[in-house]
Amino acid sequence: MSEQSFLDHSHQRGFLECQIGSLLAALEHASRAERLAQAPGLLQRFDPRVRLIAMLVLIGLVVSTHSLTTLYGLLAAAALMAFVSRVPLTILARGIWLNVLLFTGALALPAIFLVPGDSVFHVPLLGWAMTMQGLESAAFLVGRALTAATFAGLTILATPWPHLLKALRTLGVPAVMVVILCMTYRYIFLLLQSALDMFEARRSRQVGRLTGAEKRHMLVANAGVLLSKSLHLADEVYLAMQSRGYRGEQHALLEFRMAPLDWTALAVLLAITSVAFRFQAWGLG
């Protein structure tokens, strides 16, 4: 993925290495998340529904605030949350912040000069005017992207994915969607692994350099094999579902229970939200 994401962007030289690298990054992200979800941190103890709701509320706050102080305060809170949830800061820094800064940071940079307003500094020689408005708008964009990604990333890193998908049920997502999402999540890894195997097999036989056309041809052929495999997989999975009594009904067993800790978390969340909005209403920051 060339865009902003939680995945590592280690840029490999070779074409096959590059394909393998990006597939491996996705698998590694998944296994890291699974490991951290088992860690005995604070965030891990909340009911998955509370974590999901908190994430949505906080991201909503990040997106709607007009105050840089609130925005960066939330970022600090997110970092603190990571600390008490035993999510190492290096993972946040390398897995999330670096990626956001590389993408959104680069994207926001020209805005410093392009947004019209009161100039605060002229770049020597070029004569470009850095504006106050430009700086602030870059700070908003980067701050929002950073903070929202941190909250989203923290939730994912601290929650087993199937739990998070099932928690969507409480937000009114229909059962059939939750079932499909769980199944999609499961088969992403099978298809990732298949794709990885194809590229690895090709790499072991590859001598010499591929031309652009050969690379495209090979990539499309691999995607084709994956497509046929997917169609076949859908047929077989349907049989396997029928064999265990599937008749078109969707069920998802929720195994969540709200504990006092969860209600406390919700209360704290409510407090943070109202304080943030008060702050804005007073025109502070």
């Binding site: 499909i180 298809l191 495209r216």
Partner: peptide
């Protein structure tokens, strides 16, 4: 739902996810 629609959708979403990760040389 009484057809293979559920697994087909799931598998196809997964397929499009994986294809989005391919870096196509241009």
């Amino acid at each position: 739902l009484h057809t293979r629609m559920v697994p087909l959708l799931a598998v196809f979403s997964a397929f499009s996810f994986v294809v989005m990760m391919f870096n196509l040389p241009l």
